[in-house]
């Protein structure tokens, strides 16, 4: 039992609990938060495999950005849970078959590793830097694939914008350049007022009247309190 194995078991358990929570929570917001917990615990497990860069990127991209937008959408939706669950018994057999097929496929692929006792992955030396190794690979051997991934993302951005863009709308928005060009001359008019007796003259008199019997007044209020 080492510190690492304790950390592993704790976060592996959290990953499973979070994943179960995603499908069992009644409230959609809580389900999304469970998914966040799953991602976070998975990131810790990656960290244990000395893949720091991937682990931190998982937190940064999925937890920090993607899931926030997810949460936004779920919060804004008014989900009717009763109608959501209405077809449950009807689709149950199909669901079970799909789940079994998926489980069987996964089991068939990894059975040799699951059935045997897994050896602990070999540790790298202290100089090993996951970031450097990953960077070297991405920008040499896999440069082509890396660039293609970038272009695909760019296309996705353009597609998303063109899907939501519905032509120019005539809006009454703020025009910032026009606001910047505004000068004092066209907005401000200095008016010289005729000077007369001060409007607040009676107030000042009252103030002065209050000031004089200050000590007396204090005593009086104290008496009132009692």
């Amino acid at each position: 039992m080492t510190v690492e194995s304790i950390v592993f078991y704790v976060f592996a358990a959290l990953t499973v609990i979070g994943a179960l929570g995603v499908i069992t929570m009644r409230n959609a917001v809580q389900a999304v938060l469970c998914l966040v917990l799953t991602f976070f615990s998975a990131a810790v497990l990656w960290m244990l495999l000395e893949a720091e860069f991937l682990a931190v990127t998982l937190v940064l991209v999925y937890v920090g950005a993607v899931m926030v937008l997810f949460l936004f959408v779920v919060m804004m939706l008014d989900v009717d849970y009763a109608s959501l669950k209405s077809g449950f018994t009807k689709y149950l057999p199909l669901g079970i078959v799909t789940a079994l097929a998926l489980f069987g496929a996964i089991y068939w692929v990894i059975r040799s590793e699951v059935l045997g006792d897994m050896p602990e992955p070999a540790k790298h030396s202290a100089e090993y830097s996951n970031v450097t190794v990953l960077g070297r690979l991405l920008y040499t051997d896999y440069f082509y694939a890396f660039e293609i991934a970038g272009v695909i993302l760019l296309v996705a951005i353009v597609a998303a914008i063109s899907l939501t863009f519905r032509g120019r709308r005539e809006r009454r928005g703020q025009s910032v350049p026009m606001q910047h060009q505004a000068s004092r001359e066209e907005r401000l008019r200095v008016v010289s007022m005729e000077s007369g007796p001060r409007q607040d003259a009676h107030l000042r008199k009252e103030e002065e009247a209050k000031k004089k019997p200050k000590s007396k007044r204090k005593k009086k209020t104290k008496g009132d309190d009692a």
């Binding site: 940064l60 920090g64 950005a65 926030v68 949460l71 936004f72």
Partner: peptide, 25 residues
């Protein structure tokens, strides 16, 4: 003394937004 210190900082500051969203909701 982590090799991904800078990314870690960004990741941690980006998590804090959950506290705000959940508090509001």
């Amino acid at each position: 003394n982590s090799d991904v210190g800078l990314l870690y900082i960004l990741a941690m500051t980006s998590i804090a937004v959950y506290g705000v969203i959940i508090a509001g909701w």
